[in-house]
Design a protein around this nucleic acid. Structure first.
Lengths: 247, 247
DNA sequence: TCAACTTCGTAAACACCGTTCACTGAACTC
DNA sequence: GAGTTCAGTGAACGGTGTTTACGAAGTTGA
């Protein structure tokens, strides 16, 4: 039946357990509390045993990041599901709101994944240029690209503005990644329907989305905002309405 | 001559020394390396002695944050100096570029001050609503407000758009803070010359500024950007040119 | 089936960490 | 000059990441 030997099954099980316990420690008591000994205590083994699974605490945290990204991706897709395939416009707003909601509900995970200087996560090497893979903005960018590709007048009425010339190479490389990703999910896309200007716009949107969410999570708005939600919605509008994407 | 006793002078001196050594540890080896024992070793005392100066490691880090903010403020003002009092437009661009340059040159400091979930720094209480004081965005907001107040057509040709109604109270409170701050630096400002819409615009600008800089510092752009500077400049343009602030 | 091999987990140890406590000795006050 | 304040000490406690040698299972093949 199962090809896996008894030992392999047990190993996989404890590994899941380790990650799960590490995760709850992170959520409930913050990054500093994710201690090898604490994890081991919860799992019911001793600290050195963890070295059979991870090279170091850093390595474990790195894997934790991957898990978190996967969960975020799943959550965002789950929020998209009920909207149906063709609700492109609502999807964009749903992904953005979903990202904010997730970040506010999981501040520790957010700051680990999205605000670490350390090489905990791969700040990517040149080779990663060609894959969005396992990357957080993935869902956002994918949904948005799909929408742009389908949309008749993706940027109001006129052509999208030309991005700075120095960025053309980077944008073109990224364009290929997006086209491949979106195509893999069953939407026809080519260079013409997803122009560089649109990608540049998307990038700017990601900057604003991330900026607002991070400021809110870290409580770093320059004054006390008693209810940031309408501000967030206003921002979404001012990003997407000029792009021709109304709610 | 000096009112300070010998003891007071010595104390002040070691305190400066402690902060300086802590700072270099942070810069060179990251937040985790700022340990009481390491600091003490550099200063030439023992770890428990530090408790004569700070309640805990957390407390020390908090003070470190204050120092960092002061330095950042000084650096930004220094970049403004050569531009002269009346170069409002250039000042805005200079402050933004200065902020980015500082963040890239001091990633550890940046992430400590601008991206900490923990209560290391005061995520501010309702009482702080009335002071920008010791707050990072201070310089940026002050320079920008001053410019807006002086400018004839601060928002292109038309009136600034109305911000969401729910935010009016918060914005009005913040308006008072800004007016007080700017006035204190010798520029005449009142509610009319610094309307809520303009402040809201400013807030959006801070979101984008922060978003770009943080993404760059943490290497979290969705693809490898080989030279983010022109992207930053393009963003500055798309923020300020619609506000009527051309370089 | 039994020996050889692989692998998970252990206990002990090392060097480091934040923090507390009783203490010394110098600086200060009157 | 006596009494007080206080920066700094050394020892100790319980915690940390990590390495090491070792035992006890699971697996493999003859």
């Amino acid at each position: 039946m199962t090809q896996a030997t008894r030992r392999e099954r047990l190993r996989a099980e404890t590994e899941r357990d380790i990650r799960r316990q590490a995760r709850t420690l992170l959520v409930n008591h913050g990054r500093e509390a994710v201690t090898l000994r604490a994890i081991a205590r919860e799992v019911g083994i001793t600290a050195p045993a963890l070295y059979r699974y991870y090279d170091s605490r850093e390595d474990l945290l790195r894997h934790l990041c991957d898990d978190i990204c996967e969960d975020l991706e799943a959550e965002l897709y789950a929020a998209l599901e009920p909207l149906g395939e063709d609700a492109g416009t609502e999807q964009v707003y749903a992904v953005c709101r979903g990202f904010r909601r997730w970040a506010l509900a999981h501040p520790q995970e957010f700051s680990l994944v999205f605000a670490s200087t350390e090489n905990v996560i791969g700040t990517f090497k040149p080779t990663d240029r060609l894959k969005v893979g396992d990357q957080f903005g993935k869902v956002f960018l994918e949904v948005a690209s799909r929408l742009i590709a389908k949309h008749e007048h993706p940027h109001g009425e006129g052509e999208p503005p030309e991005p700075p010339a120095v960025l053309h190479d980077d944008l073109r490389a990224f364009q290929q990644v997006l086209i491949r990703t979106v195509t893999a999910r069953g939407v026809e896309v080519d260079e013409e329907s997803l122009p560089l200007g649109a990608i540049f716009h998307l990038l700017q949107a990601w900057v604003r989305l991330y900026g607002h969410v991070a400021l809110e999570v870290f409580g770093r708005f320059p004054f006390a905002v008693s209810d940031p939600e309408p501000m967030f919605d206003a921002m979404l509008g001012s990003i997407f309405i000029p792009m021709g994407v109304e709610e």
